[in-house]
């Protein structure tokens, strides 16, 4: 079943994220694809995540498709102008990639090529609007397409914004993204259920499915690093202590992720697991969460 039909069926949706590596070795992607097949409804492929140069999202999505998974092409506005974005979208569609997650993208200065010229010709809201236009059979300047795609576009939102202004700005932008065509949302990682509940109270009214982001903790150090460096992520001290004092970090990390999933389950339409190198442990997390 495609991501779209699973979402429309009202079933609790599970998506996971795969990050391609730097280079042409695709062994790990193939292994992960085999492990995830049958366990997740769709698999996102990151687009040079954190502005670190890697194998491309489109090629990786194609490989996953060959393996029978439903890929979600993550597409940032960081590296391509409007010509390249539209052209790559059409290319994706002819390769059978239907789901697109429109993202603005991290700044190049945060990655491994800080000298790069950032593009940002379009932003995520405008990219969604462009996808909508392509679906209608036109490019963004109203030229007719010969053969039109039928994309299923999604977007991201950060429920953990830490100021009143940022919280409201996230909701305003979420609404703009829906108007521009977003059919589902995947969120930044959630560790505090209260924060997510507060966000969903406002976002529920938009009637667009939200998949809550889950990052399994690998260590206390990782949790502290994310608290310090990643906007919207807040790992409470209690969880950091659990990771710091456990004798089996893997088991505890999986347990914490599974518990969070159980708590979030009633509040949203699904979850999105960003395993950050722990892709092979996703089945264990799902088992522990009873999914």
């Amino acid at each position: 079943m495609s991501l779209q039909s699973v979402l429309e069926s009202g079933k609790f949706v599970i998506t996971a994220e795969v990050g391609p590596l730097k280079g042409t070795d695709t062994t790990e992607i193939t292994e992960v694809a085999e492990l995830l097949g049958g366990r997740v409804d769709a698999t996102n492929v990151t687009d040079q995540q954190s502005s670190v140069m890697r194998l491309g999202s489109l090629a990786t999505c194609y490989l996953l498709k060959q393996k029978g998974l439903d890929p979600v092409l993550q597409m940032t506005c960081r590296d391509r102008n409007r010509l390249a974005l539209q052209s790559d979208l059409l290319s994706a569609y002819v390769l059978g990639v239907k789901n697109v997650l429109a993202i603005t993208g991290d700044l190049p200065s945060l990655g491994d090529h800080p000298q790069a010229k950032p593009v940002y010709d379009l932003d995520s809201v405008q990219l969604l609007w462009v996808i909508k236009r392509l679906n209608e059979g036109y490019d963004m300047v109203d030229n007719e397409l010969k053969g039109k795609p039928n994309f299923f576009p999604g977007a991201v939102v950060n429920p953990g914004a830490d100021t009143e202004a940022a919280f409201e700005l996230q909701l305003i932008k979420m609404e703009k993204k829906i108007t521009a065509g977003a059919r589902f949302f995947q969120t930044q990682a959630i560790f505090t259920v209260d924060t997510f509940a507060k966000f969903m109270k406002r976002a529920e009214g938009f009637s667009t499915p939200v998949l809550a982001g889950i990052i399994p903790l690998k260590s206390a150090g990782m949790a502290r690093f994310m608290n310090k460096n990643i906007a919207g992520i807040f790992v409470p001290e209690e969880l950091i202590n659990k990771m710091a004092t456990t004798e089996d970090r893997v088991r505890t990390g999986i347990e914490i992720a599974a518990n969070t999933i159980k708590e979030l389950k009633g509040m949203c339409q699904g979850i999105h697991i960003m395993a950050m190198g722990w892709e092979k442990r996703i089945p264990a997390i799902l088992d522990a969460a009873g999914l």
Binding site: L110, Y120, D123, V156, T163, A166, K176, Q188, A231
Partner: peptide, 20 residues
């Protein structure tokens, strides 16, 4: 805005400051 975004904030702000 560091990214020059014109349709609203990115998800990178923290405590009112830019992630950069």
């Amino acid at each position: 805005c560091t990214k020059g975004l014109i349709n609203g904030q990115c998800g990178g702000a923290s405590k009112g400051k830019c992630e950069l």
